[in-house]
Amino acid sequence: MNIMDFFRKKNSSDVAKDRLKLVLVSDRANCSPEVMEMIKNDIIKVISKYLEVDAEGLDIQITQTDIDGSKGIPALYANIPIKKLKQTSE
């Protein structure tokens, strides 16, 4: 990478590319916001059995995986902040 690149503003073709990639992932997933909300609620329900999670801070989205060459496969990413690990009483 050229040192000049640090000072240069991001050019418009890169902006276009990034915007397109994001919009196409959601286009391709064909998942409505309602369905995403239902998935989110169900995830909270299941996880809450075992952990105390922050339902407000939970974020799920469909993006593309970028792991060792398997680029382009859609994946459901869930970011679930854990408030407290519940003590299991065995």
Partner: peptide
Amino acid sequence: KRGDMMSIDD
């Protein structure tokens, strides 16, 4: 060339 249009590769 000046970064204002996506290239063929893009």
